[in-house]
């Protein structure tokens, strides 16, 4: 049996075309040994959740610079719940005010990373959080 690789879906939702950040994070997670599925631009919440399901990812990272985060994150979270994919970590980053980060966190969104975050912090967070969630699932007897 090979080690179970961490798989992460990195997406750019909405019409914003500034994908530099998403690409930098995707490359950093790859260099941290993860398998990163990059979907490209202009993703809708339902496209994101469908890709996440087919790819059986451990985490979704959304890059948000369009100020639509209070719409997109809750919608993705809701679709994940509807499809029984609550085990997937929803995280992300971009230009997001602190009070919105708190509000999203209470909804169940994971940590959100702002400009200037060292790439290693993101990789460590994803590894730890995915590890914790996987342990929970396997303790519950999920294959």
């Amino acid at each position: 049996m090979t080690e179970r690789k961490i798989r992460v879906l990195v997406c750019k939702p909405g019409l914003d075309g500034h994908d530099r950040g998403a690409k930098v994070v995707a490359a950093a997670l790859r260099d941290a040994g993860m398998e990163v599925i990059y979907t490209g631009l202009r993703q809708t919440p339902s496209m994101i959740v469908e890709s996440a399901m087919q790819e059986d990812v451990d985490a979704i990272g959304l890059s948000m610079h369009s100020a639509a985060h209070m719409t997109i994150f809750p919608k993705v979270l809701q679709l994940l719940n509807e499809k029984g994919l609550q085990h997937i970590l929803l995280t992300g980053g971009g230009v997001i005010p602190d009070e919105d980060i708190v509000a999203l966190s209470t909804l169940g969104v994971g940590r959100l990373f702002g400009p200037g975050t060292p790439m290693a912090d993101i990789a460590v967070y994803v590894k730890d959080e995915v590890g914790r969630r996987r342990a929970e699932r396997s303790a519950a007897g999920v294959l």
Binding site: A26, R30, G33, M34, E35, V36, I37, Y38, T39, G40
Partner: peptide, 11 residues
């Protein structure tokens, strides 16, 4: 080198 991968076919 790292075992990581960037899978971009979905794009």
């Amino acid at each position: 080198f790292t075992g990581g991968a960037l899978l971009g076919d979905r794009v």
